[in-house]
Amino acid sequence: MTGANVLLMMGCPEVPIQTSIALYLSHKLTKLGFDVTVAGTTAASKLLKVSDSDGYYVKKLVDLDKTIENIIEERTDFNICFAFMHNDAGMTYATTMSSISQARMYSIVFGRNAEALAETIEFDCEKIVAQDVHNPVRLKNKLDKVMEEIAR
């Protein structure tokens, strides 16, 4: 799958580990040869831009709603989508993405209610679940295994 287009879809940045995992995943996938785009809300994007002000880890950062519009209007699409979610709205956005896009879906579910939220996911995806808020290491380790698989 190396060379494929990958979308990292960030939701509300209220839970701290989202930003660090998005930066980590974007950089690792880029180094593996994937064409990575990160989509976020205004707040999530600003957190990322300040953390990575020279665009070293994130090469393409786009608006989440505009990206959804572009996929619906068939102006763009992706091969793989990692959807971050820690609340019902994040899960709702990811479900929409699974309906409108051809992308293979990976749901990154985190935060205090991660396990309960993961059970509400109805669309076809691989779930990466970690009931963590501040410490990103467990989620990072799970994602390392996923990246190994998709890089084959």
Binding site: K59, N70, I71, R75, D77
Partner: peptide
């Protein structure tokens, strides 16, 4: 079933660059 067929391959618009967002 409301999940219709996936959209066909189409012309891809380039994503805005990181610098444009900045």
């Amino acid at each position: 079933s409301l999940k219709k067929g996936k959209p066909p391959e189409s012309t891809r618009a380039p994503a805005a660059s990181y610098q444009d967002i900045w």
